[in-house]
């Protein structure tokens, strides 16, 4: 996280070739540079390999037919059945998998969007307004960062039980909106990147506080907001324990819980194993899309920060 926070201070192209400018000044550097660079490269390649290997396995396994899955090497392609497998997956059990994906997109997409707005507003208010108890509120939020979401699942279940709202969309959606880390990040970023002078100026021009926040502060805070959104999107997408405890109706499941449920039935219906694997592969695609399409906002945010 510190990288994102300190990034606006640095020029984007300064990180490009730090070794190149140094080597001009020091003639003896190339050898050292070569060694350290190749060491760095090796570390990067090894860790890249390490992180991508399971994804590769997942991809390869998703392309195989059920017979070849057990009998061929897990890392080598066999007959390419990916689209046929995906078709079977989407058709199985009246297309329940698509329903789960849709649920996940709804829980994670809408949840992260609204959650980011809440975090941004709370963080901005804590950074820019002086009011009694401000530090106390902030410290309580900070304390919230330390409480793992898993530990709150059971108390939440008992609370939702009292109002009869377990096994509903809201029982998973509402708790997902809360993100103390997002508030923390938004506060730090707002106090660093939104100048008080700008707010004064907009007030003098007659802009209301809410309008100022949505037109001026929001734009200045964009890189932090994208970060909060992505983090919360991934957190809700991967959230498993809360839906596990709250939901009993299959049509409300997010894809994580659905796949887990299938996986636990493998002993009974061995055919399901194929669906679990293809389902896992398909379920990571929205995450990849979310990251690739949102990362440019980080860059544009960096740029606009440096121009200011």
């Amino acid at each position: 996280m510190s990288a994102t926070l300190s990034a606006p201070a640095r020029k984007p192209d300064a990180s490009g070739e730090p070794g190149a400018s140094r080597s001009n000044r020091k003639p003896r550097a190339p050898r050292e540079k070569l060694m350290s660079r190749s060491a760095a490269m090796i570390v990067m390649v090894v860790s890249c390999f390490y992180f991508l290997l399971p994804v590769w396995w997942l991809f390869v396994s998703s392309t195989k037919s059920r017979e070849q899955f057990g009998s061929t090497n897990g890392f080598l392609l066999a007959d390419f059945n990916l689209f046929q497998n995906i078709g079977n997956l989407f058709a199985y059990n009246d297309g329940i998998y698509l329903r789960w994906m849709l649920n996940s997109v709804l829980y994670a997409g809408a949840g992260a969007l609204i959650g980011t707005v809440i975090s941004a507003m709370a963080g901005y208010a804590l950074a820019k307004y002086r009011f009694p108890g401000r530090e106390l509120v902030f410290n309580v939020v900070l304390g919230g960062v330390l409480v793992p979401a898993t530990a709150l699942a059971l108390p939440l279940f008992l609370i939702f039980s009292q109002v009869g709202a377990t096994n509903t969309f809201w029982s998973v959606f509402l708790p997902s909106l809360v993100n103390p880390f997002g508030v923390y990040l938004a506060r730090i970023y707002a106090s660093a990147s939104v100048p008080d002078e700008l707010l004064e100026a907009s007030r003098l021009d007659g802009s209301g506080e809410v309008r100022t926040f949505f037109t001026i502060a929001r734009k200045l805070m964009t890189p932090a907001l994208v970060t909060i959104f992505l983090f919360q999107f991934v957190a809700i997408w991967n959230n498993f324990f809360l839906p596990l405890i709250m939901l009993r109706d299959e049509s409300l499941f997010p894809v994580t819980l659905g796949l887990y449920t299938w996986n636990s039935q493998v002993n009974q219906i061995p055919e399901i194993r194929t669906y679990v694997i293809i389902g896992a592969f398909v379920s990571i695609i929205p995450l990849i899309i979310a990251f690739l399409s949102l990362q440019r906002f980080w860059q544009s945010g960096l740029g606009s920060g440096s121009v200011k």
């Binding site: 279940f157 096994n167 596990l244 405890i245 939901l247 109706d249 299959e250 887990y260 449920t261 636990s264």
Partner: peptide, 17 residues
């Protein structure tokens, strides 16, 4: 209503419920 197999979470859910 459904869920994972018993030891995979459904028993725990029964006790919570």
């Amino acid at each position: 209503q459904t869920g994972p197999n018993g030891n995979g979470g459904t028993y725990k859910n029964f006790f919570n419920q």
